[in-house]
Amino acid sequence: MSELAQLRLLLDSSSDVHWLIDCASGRLLYLSAAHAALGFSAEEAQQHADKLLAQLPARLARWQDGDASRLRLRRELVLERADGSSLTVEIESVLVLDKKGQPLQLAGVVRDLSRQLAERAEWETQQKRFASMLSHEFRTPLSTIDGAVQRLEMTSANADEATRKRYRKIQVAVDRLIAMIDDYLSPERLASIGRKRQANEISPEALLETVGEAARIRRNAIKVEVFGLPQWLRCDPQGMRLCLDILLDNAIKYTAPDTAIELVGKKASEGGVEFSVIDHGSALPEEEIARLGERGFRGRAAEGIAGSGLGLYMARAVAEAHGGSLTAQNLSESGKKFRIWLPIAV
């Protein structure tokens, strides 16, 4: 079997549809047999190919005019079948150039996106369920606190000013948390994180400083350090602040009052950026590290401390919605580090 025949056999065995077009004549030179597996007859495949061929002259003209973006294109299309059904596909094509840099052929591939779309829909469904559960878990204790504070305020006519001031501070904090739930933890809002394109409008350094300043109300010894971060960052600002708030809250909650905590932002060695919360308290049990971020999981250190085991789960969900990750590790000297990694170009 010749190398050309082997190549054709390989392409025909693929689940993707491969094709090749001659730029000079606009003739379809090759179309792999995978179109049948996608539910298209040879005639239907040819009809869709003819539509692509009709767009080739305009693409070549733009390339000749110096538009380098025409070299490689990728787009999603909905292709109609003869039986009335449709299929969402991704079509990627590239101009094959000769030695003089002139377009010789157009090579491309058609990929079935059905599985990816189904997985995306399932992920969004899970996110909505998670957000509904999370909203309920937060609202229940907050409603109890809200009712108790209101009763205290109504019966505090004889209380001193300092006591009434504390009641007002509690009420303001409860109102803020309820507003955050209404604004942020709705199923639709949480499911949209990472799906909508965010503007480059958040300063990562300002984000870290804001989060650190808010946490210093509870722990003064919080140090913010920034190394080589970009001036602007594309992310969901509220989501990223929520992640950092959760990590700092845990660091404060599970360390002694005099333990130093560091909030660090820098370029990641593997590319992208990382935000880390580092404390110098006790280490994590090695057998628990892999389970951190599981819904409802609480380690041995959480015994006797109020909580639901949802904080790290929520933080990880938001990080992963950005295409990133949340990991934890013990430090060789002392303490531990929780790290948010985001795949953002620097």
Rank of each mutant, 00 (worst) to 15 (best):
L4I: 05
L4N: 14
L9P: 00
L11C: 09
D12G: 03
S13L: 13
S13Q: 13
V17H: 01
H18L: 07
L20K: 00
C23H: 03
L28H: 06
L29E: 11
L31S: 00
A33P: 01
A34C: 04
A36L: 10
E44W: 04
Q47R: 12
H48Q: 05
P57M: 01
P57L: 00
R59E: 06
L60N: 04
A61S: 01
W63D: 03
D65E: 15
R72T: 07
L73D: 02
L73G: 05
E76P: 00
V78A: 04
L79Y: 10
L79I: 10
R81L: 11
R81G: 01
A82H: 14
A82K: 15
D83W: 15
S85R: 15
L87Q: 13
T88H: 08
E90N: 11
E92K: 09
V94L: 07
V96I: 13
D98A: 02
D98Y: 02
Q105R: 13
Q105K: 06
L113Y: 13
L113D: 08
Q116A: 14
Q116N: 14
L117C: 06
A121W: 11
W123N: 11
E124L: 14
E124Y: 02
S132P: 07
M133T: 12
M133Q: 14
L134K: 00
S135G: 08
S135D: 02
H136A: 05
E137H: 15
R139I: 01
L142Q: 04
D146T: 03
G147E: 14
L152W: 13
T155P: 01
S156F: 03
A157I: 10
N158R: 13
N158I: 08
R164M: 11
R166H: 12
Y167H: 14
R168Y: 13
I170D: 09
Q171N: 14
V172S: 09
L177T: 10
Y184F: 13
R189P: 06
R189K: 15
L190N: 04
L190K: 04
I193M: 08
K196P: 04
R197G: 03
Q198P: 02
L208T: 06
V211Q: 14
E213C: 08
A214W: 15
A215F: 12
R219V: 12
G228F: 00
P230K: 04
Q231T: 11
R234F: 05
D236N: 13
P237S: 08
C243I: 15
D245L: 09
A251G: 08
D258C: 08
I261H: 09
S269C: 09
S276C: 11
S276V: 09
V277D: 10
S282N: 06
S282A: 12
E287F: 04
A290H: 04
A290M: 09
G293Y: 06
E294L: 07
R295G: 04
F297I: 03
G299F: 01
R300Y: 01
A301E: 03
A302V: 03
E303Y: 03
G309W: 09
G311L: 03
G311R: 03
M314Y: 08
M314H: 11
M314V: 07
A317W: 11
A321G: 13
H322W: 10
S325Y: 02
A328R: 00
E333Y: 07
S334W: 04
L342I: 08
P343Y: 05
